[in-house]
Computed example of a mutant assay.
Amino acid sequence: MDIDETKDRLYYVLEHLDAASRERNFQAFLEDPEWLDLKERTEKNGPLHENIDIVYMKNAPFFQIK
């Protein structure tokens, strides 16, 4: 949960081998037929979000380097 409880935020943390794979993976997600169908059905009455922020992070000490 976000420390600022006045915000209604959902965070996804994803790992990618490099920037190129990150871009390929995200594009594949955006074009995925199952995702597109689900998005269409759940947003019949309007979008479920106000905005999407994308944040790129470096490896943090609490992540295990594989």
Rank of each mutant, 00 (worst) to 15 (best):
S21E: 04
M57Y: 15
F26P: 01
F29P: 01
I3A: 15
D53W: 05
E5C: 05
D2Y: 08
P33N: 01
D2C: 05
Y11M: 11
E23T: 12
R24G: 01
L30T: 08
L17S: 08
Y11H: 15
K58D: 06
A19G: 08
I54V: 12
V13S: 09
A19H: 14
N51I: 00
D4T: 05
E40F: 06
D53K: 11
F29C: 01
R22P: 07
K7N: 15
L14C: 13
N59H: 15
A19T: 06
E23G: 05
F62E: 12
R24L: 01
L10K: 13
L10F: 15
R22E: 03
M1R: 12
V13K: 04
D53G: 04
Q64P: 08
D2T: 09
Q64E: 10
K44Y: 07
L17N: 01
E34Q: 07
N25P: 00
R22I: 05
M1F: 04
D4Q: 09
V55D: 11
D8H: 13
Y12H: 12
A60H: 15
D53A: 04
R9L: 13
D53R: 13
L38E: 11
R24V: 02
S21P: 01
D37C: 02
D8R: 14
I52S: 08
N51C: 05
D4S: 03
H49I: 03
D8Y: 11
A28G: 00
Y56P: 06
L38Q: 05
Y56L: 14
F62Q: 12
P33A: 06
L30D: 06
E50Y: 10
A60M: 04
Y12S: 09
E31V: 00
V55W: 14
Y56Q: 15
